[in-house]
Simulated assay, not measured.
Amino acid sequence: MTAFHALRVSRHALLNRAHMLLYSLAILALLRHRLSCLLSSSRFLPLLLADLVLAFMWVACQASRWRPVRRHEFPDRLLREVDPAAFPALDVFICTADPHREPPISVVSTALSAMAFDYPPDRLSIYVSDDGGSAVTLFAFMEASRFARYWLPFCKENGLLDRSPEAFFRSNIGGDSDKMKDSKDKHDDRDSCLVQMMYESMKAKVEGAMERGYVGNDVIFDAEERELFEKWKGFARHDHPSVIQVIFSFMSQSLHTTIAIWILNNSSY
Score class of each variant (00 low, 15 high):
1 M>G: 12
8 R>A: 07
19 H>K: 09
22 L>H: 06
22 L>Q: 12
23 Y>C: 03
23 Y>F: 02
25 L>C: 12
27 I>W: 08
27 I>E: 13
29 A>G: 15
29 A>V: 09
29 A>Q: 09
36 S>V: 11
38 L>S: 06
40 S>V: 11
45 L>H: 02
46 P>G: 03
50 A>I: 02
50 A>H: 05
53 V>K: 13
57 M>C: 10
58 W>N: 01
61 C>E: 14
64 S>T: 13
73 E>T: 03
77 R>Y: 05
80 R>E: 13
81 E>R: 09
86 A>G: 02
88 P>M: 02
90 L>E: 01
99 P>R: 14
102 E>R: 07
104 P>S: 15
104 P>R: 08
127 Y>W: 01
129 S>M: 06
133 G>Q: 12
133 G>M: 12
140 A>C: 09
141 F>A: 08
151 W>G: 00
154 F>E: 01
156 K>T: 08
156 K>P: 00
164 S>G: 03
165 P>I: 00
167 A>D: 02
168 F>K: 11
171 S>T: 11
175 G>M: 05
175 G>I: 07
178 D>R: 14
180 M>V: 14
184 K>A: 07
186 K>C: 00
187 H>K: 12
194 L>D: 12
195 V>D: 02
200 E>T: 04
201 S>Y: 09
201 S>H: 15
203 K>Y: 12
207 E>I: 06
217 N>R: 15
217 N>Q: 14
221 F>E: 08
224 E>K: 15
230 E>R: 10
235 F>H: 13
235 F>A: 11
237 R>K: 15
237 R>H: 08
241 P>C: 10
245 Q>R: 10
246 V>I: 08
252 S>Y: 05
255 L>W: 06
257 T>K: 10
259 I>K: 14
260 A>P: 03
262 W>D: 11
262 W>I: 11
263 I>F: 00
265 N>C: 13
269 Y>W: 02
